[in-house]
Amino acid sequence: MNSSIFKKIMVATDGSELTKKAVDSAIEITKLNEAKLYAVHVVAPGDFAITQNEPRDAEWKKEIKEHLTTQGKEATAYVENVGKAANIEVESVILEGNPADEIVDFAEKNEIDLIVMGTLGKTGIKRFLLGSVAENVVRHSKKAVLVVRRD
């Protein structure tokens, strides 16, 4: 019997403690559906621009980007490891740009059936119930979105 409803699932991770529950949920849903899981991290170097186009900015930005990419790879590697333990197929993807836009675009282009994400991560401010990235994905994606809150 194959009654799975989601064939391709993606989990957006920023590697923070807060997205771990989203990862757990994504893994469980992937397992139940015998689906494929994409672990997606979006590098957003724009957030870290501190000066306005001074000559040394280029060097600074390059280093920041490298650092963020390394962090992103750690975040997706975490999903791969948890996935491996659960015996599911995980593909890591690193994107660059505005996180919400990239998540929505990726889901569209790759015909993702379900987007799983946490409510707030690194950019989160506790008083907001819904992180801005999650909010924008929910608003703009045509795909099903599961927002996982932490306990």
Partner: peptide, 8 residues
């Protein structure tokens, strides 16, 4: 079974 089991 994981921590999340979607029972309800």
């Amino acid at each position: 079974m994981g921590i999340v089991d979607f029972k309800k």
